[in-house]
C-alpha cells in the first residue's frame, strides 16, 4: 500500500528549502565552477582567462608529478586500509571471545575515533620526530637509521601508521557488530564437523562477514583519500620530495600554494569522478546486502 501522506501543497517545499538552498550554494555552484574552471587557462597575472577545452586534463594526466601523486595515493590508501582493517578484525575476534570486560575494551578502543586527523598526525610526529621523539631515539639506539624527514619510505610508513591508528576504532565497531551477527549454530555445526578454531574462522566466519569487510574497504579508501589531509599536512607536508603527496594534498597545493587554478580544478573534477565511482561500487554492495539479508 502507498505510504500515508499529508495533503499539504506548499509546506513540503518550505521544508526542503533550507537543505536545497545550502546544497545549491555550497555544492552545485562550486562544483559547476570547478567544471567550468577546469576548462580555462589563466595568464600568470590572473587577469585574463581563455577557454582551452580538455587541455588542463591532458596536462594534468601527462604530468609526472601527478602520476607520482596517484601512485602515492594508491600505496597510502591500500596500506592504511589493510593495516587498519587487519588490526581491527584481529581485535574484534578477540573481543568476540571474551565474556567479561567487553564494554571496557570497547570504551578503551574507540578513543582514536574522536581525535582529529591533524592532531593524530601531530602526536605521531611528536613520538617519531628524529630530533626529540622518544621512539625515534629508541630506533636510533637500536641501530636503525630513522629519519622520516629525509627518507620518503619512512615518511610514508609514518603517515600510514598514524592514519591507520585513527581508523582502527571505526573498523573495530563494525567488525564486532558483523561477528555478532554470524549465527552461532553455523559455528557450532562446523565445530561438530571437526573444524579447528582457526579453520572455522577462515572457512565460516570470514566469508560470512565479507559484506562488512567490503563496505569497510570502501569507507577506509574514501577516508584515506580525503580525511587524511590533516595527518599528511601535520606530519610531512607532502614531503620529502613529494613522497607523501596524495591527490587531495596536491589539489590543495596546486590551487592555494602554486595558484594553478585550471589545473587544480581539473584535478578536483577527476577526484569527483573517482568518488562517484566509489559511491556506485558501494551502492552495488548495498543492493547485494539487501538481497541476502
Amino acid at each position: 500500500m502507498q505510504k500515508a501522506v499529508f495533503p499539504n501543497r506548499v509546506l513540503p517545499y518550505l521544508l526542503l528549502a533550507p537543505q536545497v538552498a545550502i546544497t545549491i550554494v555550497f555544492f552545485y555552484w562550486p562544483a559547476s565552477q570547478a567544471l567550468y574552471q577546469s576548462m580555462l587557462k589563466e595568464d600568470p597575472f590572473g587577469l585574463k582567462s581563455k577557454f582551452v577545452g580538455l587541455q588542463n586534463f591532458t596536462q594534468v594526466l601527462g604530468n609526472p608529478d601527478y602520476l607520482n601523486s596517484v601512485r602515492v595515493t594508491v600505496v597510502f590508501s591500500v596500506s592504511t586500509a589493510v593495516l587498519a582493517m587487519a588490526l581491527a578484525l584481529f581485535l574484534a575476534t578477540a573481543a568476540e571471545k571474551v565474556v567479561r570486560g567487553k564494554g571496557f575494551y570497547r570504551t578503551m578502543l574507540i578513543w582514536p575515533y574522536a581525535v582529529a586527523p591533524a592532531v593524530a598526525g601531530l602526536l605521531f610526529l611528536f613520538m617519531f620526530n628524529p630530533s626529540m621523539g622518544t621512539f625515534a631515539y629508541l630506533l636510533r639506539d637500536a641501530g636503525y637509521r630513522w629519519n622520516p624527514l629525509l627518507d620518503g619510505d619512512q615518511a610514508m610508513l609514518l603517515v600510514v601508521v598514524a592514519a591507520a591508528w585513527k581508523q582502527i576504532s571505526y573498523n573495530f565497531l563494525f567488525f564486532v557488530a558483523a561477528l555478532q551477527s554470524v549465527p552461532r549454530s553455523l559455528i557450532e555445526a562446523a565445530a561438530i564437523d571437526g573444524a579447528s578454531s582457526t579453520k572455522r574462522f577462515w572457512t565460516i566466519v570470514f566469508p560470512l562477514i565479507a559484506p562488512t569487510t567490503f563496505f569497510l574497504l570502501v569507507v577506509n579508501t574514501v577516508y584515506a583519500f580525503f580525511d587524511t589531509f590533516g595527518i599528511i599536512d601535520a606530519v610531512t607536508g607532502g614531503g620529502p620530495a613529494q613522497a607523501t603527496q596524495t591527490l587531495v594534498y596536491k589539489v590543495y597545493n596546486d590551487g592555494f600554494v602554486n595558484l594553478d587554478l585550471g589545473g587544480s580544478a581539473a584535478q578536483s573534477v577527476i577526484l569527483m569522478a573517482i568518488v562517484i565511482a566509489l559511491t556506485a561500487i558501494q551502492f552495488r554492495y548495498v543492493e547485494k546486502r539487501v538481497h541476502y539479508a
Binding site: 505510504k3 501522506v5 499529508f6 499539504n8 501543497r9 509546506l11 513540503p12 517545499y13 521544508l15 526542503l16 537543505q19 536545497v20 546544497t23 555550497f26 555544492f27 552545485y28 555552484w29 562550486p30 562544483a31 565552477q33 570547478a34 574552471q37 574514501v222 580525503f226 580525511d227 589531509f229 587531495v248 589539489v251 590543495y252 590551487g255 592555494f256 587554478l261 587544480s264 580544478a265 578536483s268 577526484l271 569527483m272 568518488v275 562517484i276 566509489l278 559511491t279 558501494q282
Partner: peptide, 29 residues
C-alpha cells in the same frame, strides 16, 4: 510524508551530494 511535483527531482538533487566531501571542491567552494 508528502507527495508533490518534483519530489524525486529534489531528492536526487540532495542525494548526489552523498559522498562528495568538501575536500574535492575546496578551491571553487
Amino acid at each position: 510524508f508528502f507527495r508533490f511535483p518534483l519530489r524525486m527531482v529534489f531528492f536526487w538533487l540532495i542525494f548526489v551530494t552523498l559522498m562528495l566531501p568538501v575536500e574535492v571542491r575546496i578551491l571553487p567552494t
